[in-house]
Simulated assay, not measured.
Amino acid sequence: MSTTVAAFDCGTNSLRLLLAGPGTGGEDGTALTDLDRRTEIVRLGQGVDATGEFTPEALERTFAVTRRFAELVRAAGVPAGRTRFVATSASRDARNRDEFFSGIEELVGVRPDVISGDEEARLSFAGALSRIRPSAEPVLVMDVGGGSTELIVGTAAGEVTSAISLDIGSVRLTERFLGAGPPAPAALTAARDHVDALLDSSGVDFASVGTWVGVAGTATTLAGVHLQLEAYDRERVHGSTIPLPKLDELAFLLSRMDVDQIKALPSMHPGRADVVTAGALIANRVAARLHVADLVVSESDILDGIALQLLQAG
């Protein structure tokens, strides 16, 4: 029987696949070996915040990428029982999500799990800490997605003490406030005020945080820009740090650029160029509440958490 597992993560902005097997150096299935890892920008959640529904074009893009990913899963011999397709923020909000569910089930052979914000947070935390060793506690893991932002606080040993999902994400904030950019000062202020209000009411004790870890596209994209990579390099991004003053500088510079200028930045994924300003704004507002020196960037995230869960389930 194959020991390989297949983890899908479908968010508001991207669709990702991780094929993984058991790793060495971990206990009780807490280590992974990556066999294949893919990311495609599908923008499933395009317009969902305004209309409450997936558009036909967004579904078509998502199904086309899912079809390619499903072929990889079949070629690896992964059975349905060792495959999980997790859908997050956009799928929680869309009225026509049954159309999405049926299409994915036909292509992959498993029905998508629309997980709660709480489960999304816990999977992200487990994934982040699977390959990052925090220097101090408590640990705050931040996952800025397209439709929501997860803030998870826990111990260096991986125990979650609090988790919250906020309805602010790079796509949602762009569509609601910022537009194509560069945003007008009034729009930027409105977006900042909106993010601040949600962070202030989140219940997170930001001042006590000892280590801040950022996962997913916003954090990794900002790390690539900060490191001035000519081409995106996952190995160099993972475990890198962004000093908080530099994060503030990045957020400011991106807010003064249009999409074409952002696309021209070395290592920038063209599919993130129109929403990274909003993602940077969210990260910057979190940073303003912290007393740590750096943002630690992890390439391990919810995908790794899903894969670990599948391996532990046998």
Rank of each mutant, 00 (worst) to 15 (best):
Q46I: 07
D193M: 14
E249G: 11
I302G: 10
T62P: 12
F8S: 07
N13I: 09
S202L: 03
R285S: 05
R92S: 11
D93L: 15
D233N: 05
G52P: 05
T220W: 07
T218A: 13
I242W: 10
T4C: 12
D200I: 11
A20L: 12
Q261A: 07
R43C: 15
S116F: 05
R43G: 14
T155S: 15
A157I: 06
S202F: 00
A190K: 04
D36A: 15
G29F: 04
P183G: 06
G169E: 06
T33K: 15
G217F: 07
M268N: 06
V114L: 08
D258K: 01
Q312I: 04
G158F: 05
R111A: 11
E106N: 14
A87K: 09
L253F: 13
A50N: 11
F177P: 05
R272F: 14
V141A: 04
F85E: 15
S135A: 14
N13C: 10
M257V: 00
T39Q: 10
P22H: 08
A156C: 12
S208Y: 09
T277A: 05
S201P: 00
A219Q: 02
G81V: 00
A288N: 08
S14G: 07
T277D: 00
D233R: 04
G23D: 02
G145W: 07
